[in-house]
Computed example of a mutant assay.
Amino acid sequence: MLSIDREQFAAGVRWWQTKTSWPNDFHNSDYKMLAVQNPDGDFRDIWWAGFLQRLTTWKALRPLSQADVSRLLNENRDDLARAWHQACAPVQDMDITGVTWAQVQAFTAVVARLKPTKSESPVFPSKFCHFLLPRIFPVFDNVAVGGSRTYEAYFDLIKRTWEATPAALQAEMVAELSRLIEIDGRSPLYEGFPMATKITELALIGVRHP
């Protein structure tokens, strides 16, 4: 597995800033809000209303409707809670460097039932899981990154690419992304910001959009 390349990371940042309408703080403010709203396995309707809207805004539901996905959530709510407490709760204070796919796969498998696809697309499960534990679950976007057929493949790509990157280069890019976030000025860097997953995502964007 190849290390992250500085130029690819820079290209990913440029694409994010110039070719999308995504926030210049790289969702720093969102991550702080999501942490406060995390239901910790208690997936009740009052939580689902806001979470569903975020999934819709992030274009995770297509071609299903909100009603379709809500029905599937209701059918799988108990399994989702059990899988959370089994797979996610024990590792929720960690990041992707300390977690394997085998540890969290049980939760992603239940999440995938909420929007079943023949192709096993990683889009919906990645966004659903990322909103809950962004430091563990990388987010996948077809236009930005593309290429991965399953969420497991993308998770492993993110994990192995970050781990192949020398510690000094990791620290350099953490400092650079922190600087870019704080330039935005809306809020200071959130202590739970998903540096490993976000930096690797940006580098992969740079590979796709040099």
Rank of each mutant, 00 (worst) to 15 (best):
R77K: 09
T108R: 00
D30E: 13
E172H: 03
A144P: 02
V207H: 01
L133E: 06
R77S: 12
Q170T: 06
G98V: 04
W48A: 14
Y154M: 02
A144E: 02
W162N: 01
D25E: 13
A106K: 08
R82D: 11
G12A: 07
L180Y: 02
E163P: 00
A112Q: 12
S119M: 09
A109W: 09
L64S: 12
Q8S: 13
F107H: 15
T57M: 02
L177W: 01
D30T: 11
P138C: 07
K198D: 05
D25L: 07
A109H: 14
E7S: 14
S126C: 00
R208E: 07
R14V: 10
P39I: 11
K115A: 09
R14T: 11
P39S: 14
T57G: 01
A196E: 06
A60E: 01
R44E: 15
F155S: 01
A11Q: 10
L133V: 04
G185A: 08
G98K: 03
V104Q: 03
S187L: 15
T117D: 13
A164Y: 02
A67R: 13
T150A: 03
S29C: 14
A196L: 02
Y190M: 03
A175L: 07
M33Y: 13
A196Y: 02
F124D: 02
V110C: 08
T97P: 00
L2D: 10
F9D: 02
G50R: 11
T150I: 08
L64R: 11
L52I: 13
A89Y: 08
E182F: 06
S65H: 12
N142I: 03
R149Y: 04
I158Y: 00
D25F: 10
W101C: 04
P23G: 08
L177A: 04
W84R: 07
T57Q: 05
A175M: 05
T197C: 08
V91M: 03
P134S: 05
T18R: 12
P116L: 09
F131D: 06
T117I: 06
S119C: 03
L73M: 10
T18W: 04
W162G: 02
A144D: 05
Q53W: 09
V139L: 02
T200W: 01
S121F: 03
S3A: 13
V174C: 00
V36Q: 14
